[in-house]
Write a protein that binds this DNA or RNA. Structure first.
Lengths: 166, 166
DNA sequence: AGTGAAAGTACAGCTGA
DNA sequence: TCAGCTGTACTTTCACT
């Protein structure tokens, strides 16, 4: 199920909903240049085919007193598949861990974590992360500030690619 | 503008909309236990106060032929504020860079990037990122797989904290 | 196009400082 | 008493067939 089934209108729909996920269907239809009913059918189809995986409100963590954001680079002792999966399952349980990506290279995982304050993060780091079996090394870096946090996919790149192919 | 102005209903609204940003207002109202009009008013207030920064559809990048996701750790030669800002402005222009966070420690920035394929990323890396003045070092790691990608804020942690304070 | 549901508005009542 | 929030009633707009 690749790109090929999507026409220009589908891609516009995805771009618009990525930019504003709460747009009404009539507004969306107007922007992509079709009438509302077929537009809604397309959205449903895109959802069912998995092109749209969900919709989320972006909540300001700092305003909810989550002052600390941390990237943690984790190295494991064993990279056997069972051990990797076990570590990933742990990450899914830990609420403070918001993202967990397996990497190539010297580091095995990068985690994005949030916490209300440094001491909460420290107790998670020592009490949970570092005391997990098979965790060999953890290097943490505090986020000073965030310069960019764009959602998902750069549709301008996608369109440029398609234009070049055509 | 802190946490203190939010009551339990507001926090429930944020948690529900973070989980499903396209929920209808009546469904939301039912879940948080009030009627629809005051619920809508609360949502508008939360939006205007900046607790809700936006709504986005989550689009499956791989299905749109963005096969490559990369974390890039960037070190700069000069960390003067003007130079930091200049680099951040560049990142905001680069479509392939989806996130740019300034860090403490040995590395200055971590970037999350996506690209259709490795060669596209490589040409961005050498043509754009590495040829930017003031960029001293870049270490890149390909994402093998993503074990967790949770949006925003862990509301269970927030509620546990508030319960402990009370 | 048409029906049924949801969004949004106006107003009146309740509750706590 | 007064401010703030709630719920009911109503109109407009949207979702869906």
């Amino acid at each position: 199920m690749a790109n090929h089934k999507l026409d220009e209108i589908d891609r516009k729909i995805l771009a618009e909903l990525q930019a504003d996920g709460r747009m009404t269907n009539v507004e969306l239809a107007k922007r992509v240049g079709i009438s509302a009913p077929p537009c809604l059918r397309r959205v449903r189809t895109l959802e069912e085919a998995g092109f749209i995986k969900g919709y989320h409100a972006v909540v300001d963590a700092r305003k909810l007193d989550f002052e600390v954001e941390v990237f943690a680079m984790v190295g494991l002792q064993s990279q056997a598949e069972a051990d990797l999966s076990r570590f990933e399952a742990k990450c899914r349980q830990w609420s403070l861990v918001r993202e967990c990506h397996m990497l190539n290279g010297e580091v095995d995982f990068v985690l994005k974590c949030v916490a209300p304050d440094l001491s909460t993060f420290q107790s998670f780091l020592t009490g949970d992360l570092l005391s997990t079996p098979n965790v060999a090394s953890v290097k943490t870096s505090l986020v000073i500030r965030c310069a960019k946090d764009a959602p998902g996919v750069p549709f301008d790149v996608l369109e440029a690619r398609l234009a070049r192919e055509a």
